[in-house]
Amino acid sequence: MVYLALFQKSFQRMIAYRGATIAGVLTNFFFGLLRAYVFIAVYQASGRAYIGGYSLRDAVTYTALTQALIASINLWSWWEVLRLIRSGDITTDLTKPYHFFSSWLARDLGRAMFQLIFRGAPILIFFPLFFELTWPGSLLHWAFALLSILLAIMISFTWRFFVNLAAFWFVDAMGIGRFAYLTMTFMSGFTVPVAYFPDWLKFAVNLTPMPSMVNTPIEVYLGIVRGTDLWVALGVQIFWFVLMTLLCEFLYRRGVQKLIIQGG
């Protein structure tokens, strides 16, 4: 199948960047330590055992997990579709025997899978040298956590794809994109867990797909979301993935039409 081939190829392509992978792990790891100490100081200063349902150990695990997921969720930059639109090469993709959105999703998943294994896992493996972490208690729990991470990667992809599509309508889509990515960092619960937010902010953020990209998989992993809430959380993730996919497809078609009518 063509999508599987695209997935494999993009996974394999990452192997070539060995030095960059090691450098990335070191950098993400360092930031993880740095942020962990901030949370330790926060718990000391607050004098509380739990903040927003997170114990100190949960909070430290949260820093390790966010740092481990950075590369696969690819929070900060992804411009491949934007470049295709800018150069007009996107119209040549119309002749290819696959579905445009799905082909890029397959490629992105290949990349994300590589980075989950080679940039994410090492951080979780070596973090216990410095701090005690929370681990899922059962195999089933692991399975749910991984499922939620997979959904998070897919939603983050739809979001990035959506941002890239802005290039159909705006000359300076890159500036818009940078803004979108930076806001997403905060709203997704990457900077601080969403549970720490004041209620009004929590409410507002939960109306967006952002928390489903970072916050949800982490809370699933930590077991903060469980029982019925777990099913709801996964349901919300699926809902956002479907909705965002439909939105992307709709906008992509409109955009291509515009390009063709105007003669690209």
Partner: peptide, 24 residues
Amino acid sequence: ADFIAACVGMIMEFVGVLVLFTHM
């Protein structure tokens, strides 16, 4: 566009600190 992105985007870092201070 870049100016606004950097200005509003980077301040989110400090907004994070603000959120932490609601608990301590």
